[in-house]
């Protein structure tokens, strides 16, 4: 569960981007974070991931369930993906092997897990290709695969489909859906609706420097 109270943040001495007096989230659903450009979506995601310290207020994660509980900043449990994911300058498989090594997986175990993940994300054919030569959709899928390898509890995705073409959006959306089905809660920001946002269970909307939360279907009804 995520509990946020009296949270505010902004840049340098400028007034706060937004203030969130209270937010409670069970950490199960697929959330669409909406808001105009410059409304502070990225900042909120980075704060939730523990990549930045808030100017005021508190963020508290209590994660239970299939995966062991931990509190943020918590590598591997609550994961933030950049809008343009950073891929390490090596092969596609090499990117996954980095993660395997950092988690102490060795030999066959590491090899099998990496191979299985490549297969699952449709990247097996690209295994030895240089990661940076991938197309936009493939890059996002590799970033998701790399994250998935860690079995994260929560994924925070910053505009995962913003610069992709139609087919790539469909592929990435399918992947995100299956990730969600494995028990990983997801918050994704997007300023435009797409096939992906349509699958979301609820939405958080940043407008007039406040966060409004509602179930997605209701919002459509309104």
């Amino acid at each position: 569960m995520l509990e946020v109270s009296q949270l505010a943040h902004g840049f340098d001495r400028q007034p706060a981007l937004w203030e969130i007096s209270h937010l409670q989230w069970q950490g199960r659903s697929l959330v669409h974070l909406r808001g105009d450009n410059g409304s502070g979506k990225t900042t909120l995601l980075r704060l939730l991931a523990g990549l930045e310290a808030p100017r005021q207020g508190s963020i508290r994660w209590t994660l239970t369930g299939a995966m062991p509980a931990a509190s943020p900043p918590c590598p591997g449990r609550v994961l933030y993906l950049h809008q343009q994911p950073y891929l390490f300058d090596t092969s596609v498989a090499g990117n996954l092997r980095y993660v395997a090594r950092w988690h102490g997986w060795r030999g066959n175990m590491a090899r099998d897990r990496v191979a299985a993940m490549l297969e699952r994300c449709g990247l097996a054919a690209h295994a030895t290709q240089r990661a940076r030569s991938l197309s936009g959709g493939e890059r996002m899928r590799l970033a998701l695969a790399r994250a998935w390898l860690l079995s994260p509890r929560v994924l925070l995705l910053d505009e995962p489909t913003a610069s992709l073409d139609r087919q790539a959006i469909a592929d990435v959306s399918t992947l995100i859906s299956s990730l969600h089905e494995t028990g990983c809660a997801i918050v994704l920001s997007a300023h435009q609706p797409s096939v992906l946002t349509e699958r979301c269970d609820e939405y958080w909307c940043l407008e007039q420097r406040c966060l409004k939360v509602s179930a997605f279907k209701q919002a459509v009804a309104v």
Binding site: P75, G76, H82, Q84, P85, Y86, A147
Partner: peptide
């Protein structure tokens, strides 16, 4: 992002 990504990934 390289540093952040590595740290995020454990």
């Amino acid at each position: 992002r390289a540093w952040e990504t590595a740290r995020q990934l454990g």
